[in-house]
């Protein structure tokens, strides 16, 4: 199976520093096209830092420095020629706590395409919005509420709205930072179902605290510990018979 999937994002020797503190240490990881990669590990292991370096959200944190190479389709995303705003349309992000804009449902999804000039007229924009909301399994629930503020939706709906907002830019990779941790079990199940559907069109990298969720939703798993990538591989292999004792200890709840 590995031979058939292309590598979408390649990370070589990636290290991250917040001032003097090192958060990531020489991480080598490949993210494949049309696959879901789950990042697991205890708190503070660097998985969120790693996720955010994939779309350069770490640029926002003053004092944060990234070393090593991260390439999207072979292009170094920290290179001189890379336009960060363009990068972020190709690598979208969904956050832990749903954070829709303080605008209407329609505007939430339309904002991105509008500022990037992806639609030449209103009806094209409406088309993009509808497609994105359908892909995020939200259209039926909000099609009569497009003018209402995004904040009037329930938690699970808001998160799907944020997913639609990311999809609207036609990304290649979608990053998700613990997307279900603020949601109830039913909303969580719907997001997991959505992730399974999205796999067909995008590459997804999902950080999750739930070991079971990582096993359910992912094709590959990467286990981080104290800033290092301890082990990565196909989900079935990692969960059945991990090579590293630390991985086994973490997934069976023995960590010590």
């Amino acid at each position: 199976m590995e031979g058939l999937s292309r590598i979408k994002v390649e990370c070589r020797g990636v290290s991250a520093f917040y001032g003097e503190t090192q958060a990531l240490n020489e991480v080598n990881l490949s993210i494949y096209d049309h696959e879901v990669m789950a990042l697991i590990g205890p708190s503070g292991c660097g998985k969120s830092t790693f996720l955010r370096s994939l779309n350069r959200m770490n640029d926002l944190v003053s004092g944060c420095r990234i070393e090593g190479e991260i390439s999207l389709d072979g292009e170094d995303i920290y290179g001189r020629g890379m336009d960060v705003t363009r990068l972020r349309t190709r690598v979208g992000m969904v956050f832990q706590k749903p954070n829709p804009f303080s605008k209407s449902v329609f505007e939430n999804v339309a904002y991105g395409p509008r500022i990037h000039g992806m639609a030449s007229n209103r009806s094209e924009l409406e088309g993009i919005v509808e497609t994105s909301l359908r892909r995020a399994s939200l259209w039926e629930e909000v099609k009569d509420r497009m003018k209402q503020p995004g904040s009037s939706l329930s938690g699970g709906q808001q998160q799907r709205l944020c997913i639609a907002r990311a999809i609207a830019l036609n990304p290649e990779v979608i990053l998700m930072d613990e997307p279900c941790s603020a949601l109830d079990p039913i909303a969580t199940a719907r997001i997991e179902e959505l992730i399974a559907e999205l796999r067909g069109s995008y590459s997804l990298v999902v950080v999750t605290h739930s070991i079971q969720q990582a096993a359910r939703i992912s094709d590959r798993v990467a286990f981080f510990h104290l800033g290092k990538l301890v082990e990565d591989g196909l989900t079935g292999d990692i969960y059945n018979d991990p090579k590293d004792d630390r991985t086994l200890g973490y997934i069976t709840g023995r960590f010590g």
Binding site: L248, G249, T252, G253, R254, F255, G256
Partner: peptide, 10 residues
């Protein structure tokens, strides 16, 4: 192997 964090499991 170390013990489970949740001793009930062991």
């Amino acid at each position: 192997m170390p013990d489970h964090i949740v001793t009930g499991f062991d």
